[in-house]
Design a protein around this nucleic acid. Structure first.
Lengths: 168, 168
DNA sequence: CAAAGAAAGTAAATATATTGACATAAATTG
DNA sequence: CAATTTATGTCAATATATTTACTTTCTTTG
């Protein structure tokens, strides 16, 4: 620590700057991400849902609550997003045979096609643009920091039980 | 590059993971941040606006468009947030003497008091919790990455003119 | 096995956020 | 200087996102 002039006074400004940048990045992620997929009328939230549903573990169908826990949004929020995706025929809701309360969410053939043919190339280009200048090591470091912050957020949130189980 | 097995195949998964973590962090930032200030009925967006208005450069009053450019949200979005903050008597809108189209946004005495007495301590604790385990260098690196990504986002966005001018 | 409890999903109310459209006022042009 | 263009803020429509409340179904108890 070479800076001798009261490092404690710098900390609040540093934290403030960090979170403001995170806030700005979040705004731009949704703004530019939604615009990138505008031709297909897909928003970043719908993107996140569709992307989750392509995961091998979720392909047989996933409950709304589990999907919400994975995306870190509320169950109630997902209801609306899922309703719109279902209306566009990209996903389907089926009743869980083992539990009539539970609805299993799954990609339709149309949804799978949208993801593979239309969205995947656009997303790939979007990633390239947004990560321009990031080396592989930069990306790994950034993921490390985001993971670390995410664990802290989960500790703050009384709803989420941090069960130490790595989710990929 | 020591990893000899097709590093190009790893890149998409790395990018995907990075943006998914960013998406999750953004969700948690708003969720836990709004909850932290729930006792004062302040959301993270209102927090961002009030925080911006405490900046010395904005204290004489700032135009809606300039505030939107600073926060990286749309002008139209701010209208609603400002209306609610004005109804709570935390900010005031005055007409710019030099331009009758422009409204100058400023903190009220009540808003200044809310920020200094009520919000600042809560925000300070929130920062401590969310950045637990982050060294000063970690914070600087994280800010660096967020800044870098932000520049890329601005390059993607056709609306924003990146005029290379550092905004603090 | 019936009653209390918990869990899953959805609806309603409130607050963001975006784009498109619009009214007013300033700036530019001919 | 009048006419077009541009700039500023707001309203409207759509899509998130949250908390509160409720219905249905499953689980737990007595």
């Amino acid at each position: 620590m070479q800076n001798g002039e009261k490092p404690k006074d710098q900390a609040p400004r540093l934290s403030n700057r960090l979170f403001f940048r995170l806030y700005q990045c979040a705004n731009m992620l949704h703004k530019t991400g939604t615009r990138a997929l505008d031709a297909h009328h897909i928003t970043t939230q719908q993107w996140a849902v569709l992307g989750a549903l392509t995961r091998p573990a979720f392909e047989p169908g996933v409950a709304v609550g589990d999907l919400a826990a994975f995306l870190l949004v509320s169950r109630q929020n997902l209801t609306g997003v899922l309703t719109r995706l279902e209306a566009m025929d990209y996903i389907e809701r089926t009743v869980d045979e083992n539990d009539n309360r539970s609805r299993l969410i799954r990609l339709t053939t149309k949804g799978r096609s949208l993801w593979d043919e239309d969205m995947r190339p656009v997303i790939s280009d979007f990633y390239d643009d947004a990560l321009r200048g990031f080396s592989t090591e930069d990306r790994i470091h950034m993921i490390h920091y985001l993971d670390k912050m995410l664990r802290n957020f989960k500790d703050i949130d009384p709803e989420i039980q941090t069960d130490k189980k790595a989710a990929e």
